[in-house]
Write a protein that binds this DNA or RNA. Structure first.
Lengths: 156, 156
DNA sequence: AGATTATTGACCTTTCCTGACCTTCTATTA
DNA sequence: TAATAGAAGGTCAGGAAAGGTCAATAATCT
């Protein structure tokens, strides 16, 4: 509980809590400097503690002026996103089921009409009939990405 | 967001916003002077930030009385953006280009932030790396579907 | 002891910035 | 009028400044 990774995790979560933006931006090397560790230790913490499953999204940019951005994922209304997401893990999602799912999100006002139409048009996948062999698996995977995006705290 | 290239980009976009002509004219060396950098840095900014995908055109002239002209490309009115966009998409669409195009839609307020994030998460997902042979073609096809959906009259 | 988790360091990729050198255009001048 | 000097902008390669990856080792847990 007192190891380095845990302390860095704690520190980051603390400032993430405080922010109203829903995200924080930082420099990897700088943070590593504060904790007097090697920079890749920061990646270890991000990879193991700030995953989608745990409610975070990490974006980054290299080169001069590079940065790390950690985004908080909210629960949506009563944790709907996560609930649906758990059901999707490792699953195949048929076109019918995905449509039903999107309709439910629409009912619960978690997405707008336009968003729903967008998602459907993509997941219906008329484009790739034949081209892609396991479209149902792809659909499940895309659905997870969609739900993750919808729950981003920095988009409200 | 604090590096030189970003600041120059910001500055140029700001004066482009203000102008009513839809373009600005400037001297490379003069601008370089203002930002206290080498002139070729200006080219770097123009090459990486003011591309066609991002909605800009750059013209220039050398020699005495030379200049740079940055033109903001509007997407036109009344559904004309559809045509322009489709042209830009073509048959293959890389991840970087698709992100640029979505940002453009956002700039033009044709999509919301959430919609933009949604589209990006789907089109730039690492999901299918490897699985699908021609992801760039699929991306182009999906992007066109998305445009069609966005212009549906029944979704206003 | 064996398995899992943490830590480090060497090496890689991306993005940015600079400077040396190149090309084009205008103006002047022999 | 032809040559040329000067005033733009263009190109490209190299170095610097980020962050990313991976495998080897150390520490901790069961």
């Amino acid at each position: 509980m007192g190891n380095l990774a845990d302390r860095i995790e704690e520190y980051l979560k603390q400032i993430l809590e405080k922010t109203t933006e829903g995200y924080i931006v930082l420099q990897r090397s700088e943070l590593a400097g504060e904790f007097e560790c090697v920079p890749s230790q920061i990646n270890y913490v991000l990879d193991t503690r700030f995953t989608v499953e745990r409610g975070y999204l990490v974006e980054s940019r290299r080169g001069g002026g590079g940065y790390l951005r950690i985004i908080r994922l909210g629960l949506g209304i009563e944790g709907q996103y996560q609930q649906v997401m758990r059901q999707l893990i490792g699953e195949h999602l048929s076109r019918d089921r995905s449509n039903a799912l999107v309709n439910r999100l629409l009912d619960e006002e978690l997405v707008t009409i336009r968003e729903a139409a967008l998602i459907k048009s993509i997941l219906s996948g008329n484009n790739l009939a034949g081209e892609f062999r396991d479209w149902d698996t792809l659909r499940a995977s895309l659905m997870k990405d969609i739900l993750t995006t919808l729950s981003r705290d920095d988009l409200v």
